[in-house]
Design a protein around this nucleic acid. Structure first.
Length: 563
RNA sequence: GGCCCCGUGGUCAAGCGGUCAAGACACCGCCCUUUCACGGCGGUAACCCGGGUUCGAUUCCCGGCGGGGUCACCA
């Protein structure tokens, strides 16, 4: 008994000297607790966050994550904030926060709290981890004081040697147990190294504190998406403070999400395997961990193999790609919601016209297995979504897109705004609205023939119609053309023209007696369509003509055949 | 390799002990139609395998197998 007691005294003294040596100025954790009190929110409110590292690259997966986090917070009356996880100086990219913010803003993700392009908003900051050093030091000191963390002067080569030995012995690699040479090292030795300016890191002492409360070899958590998950307890003395004095993700996550009072940590499945470390950290600091929700990963099919989206290898999944292609934010949101919650699509169908924000997202309905990004589905959803957006808004959308991605087209869009708007409005409204608009670049090529600057003949005459024949037909058409004709009159004239030239006025007649005709009225239309739009596939010709205006129609008829 | 997650058609997926195993996208036919688009009708196509438990397993348990993730002083 006596022995035990005195050891403890010695330990306390040891820890205190250690803390004072390494972190003489760190403030007590308790004062920070007071600085960041629990948030005053309605019961059940979720506090979530997005924690990107500013590497200058975000892809669909980040947006996917942002969407879940944001929804869960806003729909529960909680808070969604942005924290910049910039603890890796090597990978940091200039201006990344700004571009991150603007990419997210494009897709309608904004933040009421957290880092901004040039500052921050909110009472739980700083929201850049690089500015939180004081806070991390305070809690590192706390851990040292209780013996749960210690300095480690192992060099890179020493660690490599340990790893090699472990690999040879086929044991778990890492610093733990007997490999943790600096656990409880002599104070005099530590002092000598420290004063000699030897580089060191701070490691968690996984052996202390862990077994006090629960000696079981495993930990079990309730994941918000996956339900109960069990792992072996963490035994690794993971690094919590790097040589450069910045925290590792693990430590920063623990401290920040506790102090920022995050209730739900929603992140990708790739974090699942470090969960035991995070739980160990929360336990060591004596804090309640948040609710963890590990989402399925967005995958890509690569040479027949399904794999996680990679920033390096999949530029076409970068948000910048979707922005450049001009996918509409609403369509992308719609798509993300359908892969996020299996019941969303059904809800959407049975609640037409209701805003997406009315839909309640639940973690229970989220899938746990990897999702292949399906551009087909996105495009389909796009067509549906765009069909429901007024032409005026679409015209604004196209103009905004041109400003960013196609400045050459901007003058045309601006000068011929009414043409743009009318072109986008073709076949809309009514029971069966046209659904052929997908994303800006596609839309642009779809309607470009309305503008003289972009008009060109891209298709050729139907096989059985010769150039001479086309000329005859177009001259005939031009002869009877009257811009004021209503659709009925107009098409009646085409039928007559068809008959006069040996084409069936009705396709059915032609089908019945193909030998009697050169073709049918559709062929005549095709020629006119080609002359007017430069292509064989386009919406209703009469409508196109109304938008084009009489002089343009006549010009195009003429220039096609040079009569 | 250790640990963890996942496993229903090509893709996203309903299902939660008894179903002819939904639906959406894609694909293929047909219809509508002056082309396209829209729309309508129809079609091809799935419970990874093997053991249990049970009267009965896609569903529960175990074991394989397969896929993925992770094993850093990166996040």
């Amino acid at each position: 008994m006596f022995l035990c007691y005195s050891f403890q005294m010695m330990d306390t003294e040891y820890f205190e000297s250690l803390a004072n040596l390494l972190f003489p100025d760190a403030e007590p954790g308790a004062s920070l607790e007071a600085l960041y009190p629990p948030r005053d929110l309605p019961p059940g409110a979720c506090v979530t966050r997005l924690g990107p590292s500013p590497t200058g690259f975000i892809h669909l997966g980040n947006l996917f994550m942002a969407t879940v986090n944001r929804r869960l917070a806003t729909q529960s009356g909680g808070v969604f904030f942005l924290r910049i996880e910039d603890t890796d100086r090597k990978r940091e990219v200039e201006g990344a926060v700004k571009s991150l913010l603007s990419s997210l803003a494009y897709f309608g993700i904004d933040f009421a709290e957290g880092a901004t392009a040039d500052g921050e908003i909110g009472a739980y900051g700083p929201y850049r981890q690089s500015e939180r050093q004081k806070i991390y030091y305070a809690f590192v000191r706390e851990l040292i004081l209780t013996g749960k963390a210690y300095p480690c002067f192992l060099s890179e080569t020493q660690i490599e040697a340990i790893r090699a030995e472990q690999e040879a012995d086929k044991v778990l690699p890492g610093i733990y147990g007997k490999y943790a040479e600096w656990r409880g090292a002599d104070l005099s030795v530590i002092r000598r190294y420290y004063e000699a300016g030897m580089p060191y890191v701070i490691r968690l002492n996984a052996n202390v504190g862990m077994t006090e409360r629960n000696s079981a070899a495993t930990v079990t958590v309730q994941d918000g998406i996956r339900g109960e998950i069990t792992f072996p307890r963490n035994i690794l003395d993971v690094v919590i403070l790097k040589q450069d004095g910045l925290p590792t993700y693990h430590f920063a996550h623990t401290v920040d999400d506790h102090l920022m009072r995050t209730t739900h940590v929603i992140r990708g499945e790739e974090w699942l395997s470090s969960l035991p470390i995070h739980l160990a950290l929360f336990e060591a600091l004596g804090w309640m961990p948040p609710v963890y929700c590990h989402t399925a990963l967005l995958m890509k099919i690569d040479e027949g193999v399904k794999r996680k989206l990679s920033k390096r290898k999949d530029p076409e999944l970068a948000l910048s790609y979707y922005i450049a292609e001009g996918y509409h934010p609403k369509a992308v949101e719609q798509y993300l919601l359908t892969i996020l919650n299996s019941n969303f699509e059904e809800w959407r169908l049975s609640n037409p016209g209701v805003d997406n924000t009315e839909f309640i997202l639940t973690t229970e309905k989220m899938g746990a297995s990897g999702i292949l990004v399906d551009l087909n589905k996105l495009r389909d959803i796009s067509r549906d979504t765009l069909a429901g957006i007024p032409a005026k808004e679409l015209a604004d959308f196209m103009t905004d897109w041109a400003v960013r991605e196609n400045p050459d087209a901007l003058p045309t869009f601006t000068l011929e705004r009414n043409v743009l708007e009318s072109a986008l409005d073709i076949g809309r409204g009514g029971e069966k609205p046209r659904k052929d608009l997908e994303y800006a670049t596609q839309i642009f090529s779809h309607i470009s023939y309305f503008f003289d600057a972009y008009f060109q003949i891209v298709d050729s005459l139907p096989e059985h119609v010769s150039a001479e024949e086309a000329q005859v037909l177009l001259e005939g058409y031009h002869g009877t053309y009257c811009h004021e004709d209503d659709r009925e009159t107009w098409f009646g004239k085409i039928r007559v023209l068809a008959e006069e030239n040996g084409y069936a006025a009705r396709p059915k007649d032609y089908k019945k007696n193909p030998e009697r005709y050169k073709g049918h009225v559709g062929d005549v239309s095709a020629v006119i369509r080609l002359a007017l739009t430069g292509r064989l596939e386009a919406p209703d010709i009469w409508e196109i003509q109304q938008i084009l205006g009489e002089s343009r129609v006549v010009d195009r008829l003429r220039s096609f055949t040079n009569f």
